[in-house]
Design a protein around this nucleic acid. Structure first.
Length: 152
DNA sequence: GCCAACGTTGGC
DNA sequence: GCCAACGTTGGC
């Protein structure tokens, strides 16, 4: 099993929205590296840290899991969608995504600020300067360590 | 709202 | 294939 972190702006789609919907396609990813992680890396059952970005307290707020393999993102075909991509065709889709399933909320937000101040996580991609990836792998050791922070 | 750090695009 | 211009992300 692999571990991941996925960012979402809570104004657009929050952990509460995912809890309400249960399962949701993770649409709107328009970055090749992030797409490739979903397409080539994710398997059903993989665990995901749900991360809130661009908000008062950016950080990890919950846990989700991968509920499908990658398949074409419908929004790329819809001219009315803000994620529309005129170069994408049904024969050759450019963007794919997975379905994501709600697991649980964390008891508290583990903030980016907190994560940045931990020597144990110095190598984690999330806390590296200038990192803008919205989908990234998380090392098992980092996953376990971050979860151990929840109770503190 | 600002701006640093990227990623993408397109002219050459 | 280079690189300047432009667009986006996301913390602050």
């Amino acid at each position: 099993m692999k571990y991941w972190l996925m960012k979402s702006e809570p104004d657009a789609f929050s952990i509460d929205d995912l809890e309400r919907n249960g399962i949701e396609p993770w649409d709107g990813v328009r970055n090749y590296q992030a797409r490739n992680f979903m397409r080539d890396g994710m398997k059903v059952g993989d665990k995901i840290f749900f991360y809130h970005s661009n908000c008062d307290v950016p950080g990890i707020v919950g846990i989700a899991s991968v509920a499908s393999l990658a398949y074409p993102d419908e929004s790329q075909f819809n001219p009315k969608s803000k994620y529309y991509d005129e170069k994408a065709t049904r024969e050759e889709p450019r963007w794919v995504h997975v379905d994501v399933k709600f697991e649980r909320k964390l008891k508290r937000t583990i903030s980016l600020e907190e994560l940045k101040n931990l020597d144990e996580l110095a190598d984690m991609a999330l806390v590296r300067k200038g990192n803008r990836l919205s989908v990234m792998p998380v090392a098992k050791g980092d996953w376990d360590f971050i979860l151990s922070l929840e109770k503190k």
